[in-house]
């Protein structure tokens, strides 16, 4: 295995007619990394992933995936990566065994190799139901784990997961993320898209996408630091916020961001003195606490802030 990056993307763009779905995206992913794509629906996450899996050919730009490029129409890349799309990757009307046999046939794996890989992957995902189980009868979380196993049957270097935990229970989501970490411990690179902020927190690095552009890239801590260089306070007015107080706060010098979170408000400032000055002007009844910004705050500031 060579030591180069798992993924190297330079100025990747794709257009569908007049619509630019992915616009000049560049990044690189190290081997063994969990790399997350965060963004709203239609931000271009899935399209980016589909290009990097060799399913779509870019309009311009270049990418190497596992050391290979698109010069052969994506075929080489397809052999190096595993892809779990956000829709069904398994057939509900087939058994577990039939699904995995079909996946093995698609990848032209020899029966002996497929059998060995199946055992390894069943160990990995702790699957112990009989092979004759119909996929339709499995719970959602198990289905997703099995989809991952099917996507990894040919032992790919890089695994692309497009919203793998959409629609499964919180407990299953936690299990699936534990599984993703196990996969990277095996030396695989995992690229994952998600809507969930708590999942994004678990990624090594996150690429934030908006309308086809990559607007921020870094570890969760780096993103928070870049978006919020100063402190953040959570304000609780113990009821509806008084309009005068909010108006005053909104005009305070050094305020970076003021956003509602349920009944509470998050206010971010350029630095500590600016925060103290602004908080002194608030009515005494309001409780205040300095908090660590979450990725949700980052998302609101970078993605939604840019839309205002």
């Amino acid at each position: 295995m060579n030591a180069g990056p798992a993924l190297e993307v330079r100025g990747l763009s794709i257009k569908f007619g007049d619509f630019t779905a992915v616009d000049d995206v560049s990044f690189s992913v190290k081997r063994g990394e969990i790399f997350g794509f965060l963004g709203a629906n239609g931000a271009g996450k899935t399209t980016t992933i589909r290009m990097l899996c060799g399913l779509l050919l870019p309009t311009s730009g270049s990418a190497t995936v596992g050391g290979l490029d698109f010069s052969d129409g994506g075929k080489g890349i397809k052999g190096k990566v595993g892809y779990m799309s956000q829709k069904f990757t398994l057939y509900n009307d087939l058994t577990v065994g039939e699904n995995l046999d079909f996946a093995a046939g698609l990848r032209k794996l020899s029966p002996a190799y497929a059998l060995r890989r199946r055992r390894e992957l069943f160990d990995l995902i702790a699957f112990d139901s009989p092979l004759s189980t119909m996929v339709s009868s499995l719970p959602g979380g198990v289905k997703q784990e099995l989809s991952l196993a099917a996507a990894m049957l040919h032992d790919p270097e890089i695994v692309f997961l497009d919203e793998p935990t959409a629609g499964v229970s919180p407990a299953s989501r936690a299990r699936f993320w534990a599984l993703i970490r196990k996969v990277t411990e095996l030396g695989k690179t995992v690229i994952v898209t998600t809507h969930y902020m708590d999942e994004a927190e678990q990624c090594g690095r996150i690429a934030l996408m908006r309308t086809g552009k990559l607007i921020a890239l870094g570890s969760p801590a780096e993103l928070k630091g870049a978006a919020f260089p100063g402190p953040m306070v959570e304000l609780d007015f113990n009821g509806p916020a008084p309009a005068a107080a909010l108006g005053g706060l909104g005009k305070a010098a050094g305020l970076l961001e003021l956003s509602p979170h349920g009944m509470r408000w998050h206010a971010a400032f350029r630095d500590r003195p600016a925060m103290e000055a602004a908080l002194a002007a608030l009515p005494p009844g309001a409780s205040r606490a300095v908090i660590e910004p979450s990725l949700e705050d980052v998302f609101i500031r970078l993605v939604e802030g840019a839309e205002r």
Partner: peptide
């Protein structure tokens, strides 16, 4: 419709 076609075309065929 189901999306399984994506899985098929993601194989190097």
């Amino acid at each position: 419709e189901l999306g399984t076609f994506e899985t098929i075309v993601s194989a190097p065929l």
